[in-house]
Design a protein around this nucleic acid. Sequence first.
DNA 1: CGATGATGGTTGAGCGTTCAACTTTCCGCC
DNA 2: GGCGGAAAGTTGAACGCTCAACCATCATCG
Lengths: 160, 160
Amino acid sequence: MLCVVKSTRWLSDDEQKVWRTYLLANQLLWAALDRQLQRDAGMPHAYYMILAMLSEAPNRELTMSQLARMVGSSPSRLSHAVSRLEQTGWVRRRKHDTDGRTTVASLTDDGFAVLAAAAPGHVDEVRSILFDPLTPEQVEQLGEIVAAIVAPHNGRVPHV
Amino acid sequence: MLCVVKSTRWLSDDEQKVWRTYLLANQLLWAALDRQLQRDAGMPHAYYMILAMLSEAPNRELTMSQLARMVGSSPSRLSHAVSRLEQTGWVRRRKHDTDGRTTVASLTDDGFAVLAAAAPGHVDEVRSILFDPLTPEQVEQLGEIVAAIVAPHNGRVPHV
DNA sequence: CGATGATGGTTGAGCGTTCAACTTTCCGCC
DNA sequence: GGCGGAAAGTTGAACGCTCAACCATCATCG
């Protein structure tokens, strides 16, 4: 008779250590990133990403759906976020011309200015925490590793 | 005359790609982890870590400070979390015997049971998302990479 | 002994996120 | 044309986290 009960393969000591250190590194990274962005731009990283994606889009505007997919957030989360960004005057909402369901978010000049002001500090932070401590080979290895992690979920970006 | 204005070293295309993919991989990981834990144990990952650290501690109890350091959270965050875990009956608070300032949190039997029930699924999830897609060499490389990222912040765990 | 600062912890308000409804608009098809 | 379902967004409540303020207790040193 086949045993159909899947027994758990626990983590080896090495894996355990990698996992815990990974968690720590992540905490480090997010803490630094969010602190820096909150201080210099008055917004969390998720909001920065929204502005960044909009700034790179043609005419600096995107559908809510497109935007949600690009920053990997749920429709609800994005809607709340854009509402807040609208209050600060960095993003505007308007109805789509032809499709009555969709609304398109556009980056205002104020929003772009804030983004431009925050970008250098943000890049410096990413560099100093993630890239500077690594050798060029390690950066390359990291690239392959994250690619391998993302690969199985081909395209399907989860709603965080 | 020396130029003291630090000009930003922008990310190269390769670095940009690594960074974006890293963000994506992270989203993937946290989304899956939090979804699984929320579904199977009814708690976020931060709470799981609290229970896990307590379960490994002698007599399954730890000072709030110790606990906060181990899970890398601020005193405030931990206090709120433990309050909540107390309401569900998974953790108990009591005053320290000799030092009147410190309070010690202890894992209840219910809390241990919940943790034990959630652990296998959690480990499976970590394995299937992080370790399974990687070759043994890549796991080793990842270990060195995260170690290199953590190293500069020697011991100083940030309050997330 | 008493003042001073350090240590350990809690609290409340505000913000961001999630989750489950819900509305509106569009599409396909009888 | 009208009906059922899919697609696009929004909303409100509950929850977790942050930040600043705060309280209590210990340690030190004059």
